[in-house]
Every structure is written in structure tokens, then in C-alpha cells.
Amino acid sequence: MSETKVCKFCQSEIPKKAKVCPNCKKTLKQGHGCLISLIVFIGMIVAIGYAIMNADPEIYVEKSKIEEAVGCSQDEAKAIEDILKQCDITDYQDVKADKGLNGAWNKKDKGYRVETQDGDEVLMWLTQKNKVLVLKYADNMLYKKGKAKAKLTDYVLSSEEVTKWEVECKSQVEAMLKSPSSAKFGGWKYGKDKKQIVVQGYVDAENSFGAEIRSQFQFKINRKTEAITSFIFDGQELMQ
């Protein structure tokens, strides 16, 4: 086996183990340079990936609807959300500023509309420092002066309640019809307060002569006992 090699700079034949050419005096690189560079590059990629995985997660969290609408910090948005939760407002799909609501309680308050997943709308007023001042649903006060006064669920039926009372009311109405199988219900409306639930609607059904007529109905239900306390059909109270 040859014990010499050729210098890549001056092409002279030199000892195989020489690190410096004895003729041109230039340093000869060893054959592992590319491998070392590759190892260093891979190490850098691993280090960057580890840094990203362990970075502060807040950097990558998308702004909440409250942060976007109010223009507040994450901590301020969290405080607002906590108060909304106190009033059972958890599933909301949109928050919008409404300048028409500004100044309703004092000169510098800011008004917002919070739309729930069910389409209900809660009005919210914040102070200049983005503290919740008032929460209101329709004419009902939910939050004021630092205290929760009521919950949204005190005034809005859940989807389970809607299903339950529609079934019950349909059953009661169908018992009044000449042709229950022809009944077509619509116009459902719901009301709720701390004492009772109100369900309204109409039914189109055939009379004794086969003609379709429309009848209006309204039920009132005691929330505590879940007993029907009033049933008005075509303007006549049937609960005596």
C-alpha cells in the first residue's frame, strides 16, 4: 500500500500522514470536514426545535374574541371572561363594540354586544380600564356594582328545556284538535324568568270540515314544580 499522497495544491508527492505540505507549506484538511459540518447543522436544527417546543405558549395563542373586540391584554380578557362565567355566559360566538351604548352608565364607559351560540344577546359595559361595569340581558340585570345579580339561564331556556316543553305543549294542543295527524306547528317563542316559563306558538290543522285553520296557543309553566299553570288556546283559558 502506498505511503504517499499528492498535495492538492502543488501536486507534489508527500508522505501520506502529512498535515502540512513540506513543499508549498499549505495545511491539508482532513477528510471528515463535511461530516463535522453535517453534525453541527443537525445539532442546530434540534436545538431550534427544542427551543420552539419549550417557548412561552402565550406567544402562539390566538387572541380571544374579547381581546380582539376590546383591545385589552390577555389578563384583562381573562378577568372579563371570569365575570361572564359567573352569569353562566360561557358559549358566545361573537363580541362587538357598539358606540351607541357608550356612556350609558357614566361618561367614559364602553358598550359591547355579546352574542351567544343560541343567538341571544347580552349587553356589556366596561370601564376605561376594561373592568366589567354592567351585564344586561333584555330588561334583566345580570351583573352590576361588582356583583352577579342573576344568570343568563334564569331568563333563557336551554336546548334541553326547549325540546322538553315543545314535546309537552304539542301533546296538550293535539288533544284539542279534531285532526291531530294534520297538525303543523310553528312560530315558537319562549320566555323565562325566575318563577315561570312561557311557551307560545301556533298550529295549522284541519277542522271537522277538512279545512285547515290556524290556532294560537300559550302555556305558562311553574319553574319549581314544572306544572302547567295556564293554557290559552285561541284566546280561551283552559286551566280553570
Rank of each mutant, 00 (worst) to 15 (best):
A211F: 12
K194H: 12
Q218R: 07
V162S: 15
Q74W: 03
I83V: 12
Q196Y: 02
H32Y: 04
R113I: 02
T27V: 14
F41N: 04
E206N: 13
Q172P: 11
I66V: 04
K220D: 07
K99T: 02
E237A: 07
G146A: 11
Q200V: 07
Q240L: 05
I232F: 08
L157I: 15
D139E: 02
Y137T: 04
A211K: 14
E206L: 14
E160T: 13
E166K: 12
G235H: 07
A183R: 05
E168D: 15
F219E: 06
K131R: 09
C72F: 14
G103A: 04
V156C: 08
Q236C: 00
K189H: 11
E121L: 07
L135Y: 06
V132R: 00
V20L: 07
S64W: 07
V46N: 09
K16H: 07
E237T: 14
T229M: 09
D193G: 03
K145A: 05
K147C: 07
K19C: 10
L157V: 08
D91W: 05
I89T: 00
D109F: 04
E76T: 01
K144M: 13
H32R: 09
W188D: 08
A205N: 03
D120C: 04
K151E: 14
A175L: 00
D139G: 01
V134I: 11
M176N: 00
Y137R: 04
V46R: 06
M53D: 10
E168V: 14
V20W: 02
I197P: 02
R113L: 04
S158C: 09
I42K: 03
G119R: 07
N106C: 06
G201Q: 04
I36Q: 13
D88W: 11
A227N: 09
K189M: 09
N207W: 11
K149C: 12
S215E: 04
V6F: 13
Q86P: 00
